[in-house]
């Protein structure tokens, strides 16, 4: 068994039906694997189907087995592991910070460095919207941990292949 522990980005194209999310997540849960992030969205080109992007951490062999098990599900049209491929991946996070007036300039400077948008500002708080790669979001988060973060919400990673190639 290969003990190569890695984060995997899996893209699925599935039927847009009740129960599909349970069937999919059971493939992970059965092995005691946690899903790190999950995004589900309807395919607006064809509302009969949905796309899922799942991030999970584990050894490569097991994740390959789980990929085959996902593909075996009747409701999964196809599942692909896109880890390591040159694909478009973006994530969005909202960060709400405690922000007394004297910290405002400092925080706005950091926000600028990450091209974050200020989407809410009150007397004591400021909320940024940061978009980009997960790594960029992590770096911004690390830096903002020097201040008082009240809440962070992240969307999870969305994936798309480049050019003509279909995503999942």
């Amino acid at each position: 068994m290969n003990n190569n522990i890695e984060k995997h980005s899996i893209s699925l194209y599935v039927n847009n039906k009740p129960g599909v999310l349970i069937r999919t997540s059971l493939v992970f849960a059965r092995r005691g694997y946690n899903i790190d992030s999950l995004v589900v969205s309807n395919d607006s080109n064809n509302p009969k189907f949905s796309r899922m992007n799942i991030e999970a951490t584990g050894d490569t062999d097991t994740l390959h087995l789980m990929l085959a098990q996902l593909n075996r599900l009747v409701d999964v049209i196809h599942a692909r592991d896109l880890s390591g491929e040159d694909i478009l991946q973006k994530e969005l996070s909202l960060v709400k910070l405690e922000c007394p007036i004297e910290k405002r300039t400092e925080l706005l400077q950091i926000a600028e460095a990450f091209s974050a948008k200020t989407i809410d500002l009150t007397e004591n708080t400021i909320t940024f919207q940061i978009a980009g790669s997960s790594e960029k979001l992590n770096r911004a988060e690390t830096l903002l941990h020097g201040y008082k973060i009240k809440e962070i919400v992240r969307t999870g990673k969305v994936l798309m292949t480049r050019g003509e190639e279909a995503t999942a």
Binding site: G19, I22, R23, L26, R30, V74, D75
Partner: peptide
């Protein structure tokens, strides 16, 4: 029954 059926 999800874990023990082929489909439902």
């Amino acid at each position: 029954s999800y874990p023990i059926v082929k489909h439902s």
